[in-house]
């Protein structure tokens, strides 16, 4: 009998990443049925002020937006190709971030800067055999970006606004209907 597990992940979270590699290592050795579930830190933390985090690093909020962008790609892949592609795509996206060479500096700021950096996600899609001609965070047209980075940054700077509210409801109502 295999163990069943739901694993909620945001590709930009380093704790998620190392924990997920443990789960993959267990699944390699034992029958384990993992359901990989996207969970955006940017949306999860929406009600929590980023002010304290910004003291640790001003790029903290941007790093979470990078995670959200990657999860939008994950969501699109799941919609188009089914839930079975999610685990491998998470691996490929996570490796883009976490298996990269370390940045110049050796402090939290340097790592956060690397986490917040925009990167080409197409190599991850190619790695798992998915098409790369979808809208990616670099090229996504406004029509598909209800919760795009720019409105979020505006709302973070200005406090809660109506834009943020509609963004949240759009995201919180959409995923469950498409969940496996």
């Amino acid at each position: 009998m295999s163990d069943r597990l739901e694993f909620f992940f945001d590709p930009i979270c380093p704790f998620c990443w190392v924990t997920s590699r443990w789960v993959v290592e267990v699944a390699r050795q034992r029958p384990t049925e993992v359901t990989w579930r996207p969970l955006s830190l940017a949306i999860l933390n929406e009600e929590i002020s980023y002010e304290e985090r910004k003291k640790a690093s001003p790029e903290y909020p941007d790093s979470h937006v990078r995670g959200l962008e990657m999860l939008r790609v994950v969501h699109a892949a799941r919609e188009a190709h089914g839930a079975e592609v999610v685990g491998d795509l998470y691996t490929a996206l996570g490796e883009l971030v976490w298996d990269a060479d370390p940045p110049e500096g050796d402090d939290f700021e340097a790592v956060m800067h690397e986490m917040a950096r925009r990167r080409d996600l197409r190599p991850a899609l190619e790695r798992v055999g998915l098409p790369t001609d979808w809208p990616t965070p670099r090229t996504t047209p406004p029509a598909t970006t209800t919760c795009a980075p720019r409105p979020r940054r505006r709302s973070t700077a200005a406090g809660a606004g109506s834009g943020r509210r509609s963004c949240r409801s759009a995201h919180r109502t959409a995923p469950p209907s498409s969940a496996p």
Partner: peptide
């Protein structure tokens, strides 16, 4: 977390 990217930290 100890990953290649964060290995210095």
């Amino acid at each position: 977390p100890d990953t290649p990217m964060s290995s210095k930290l």
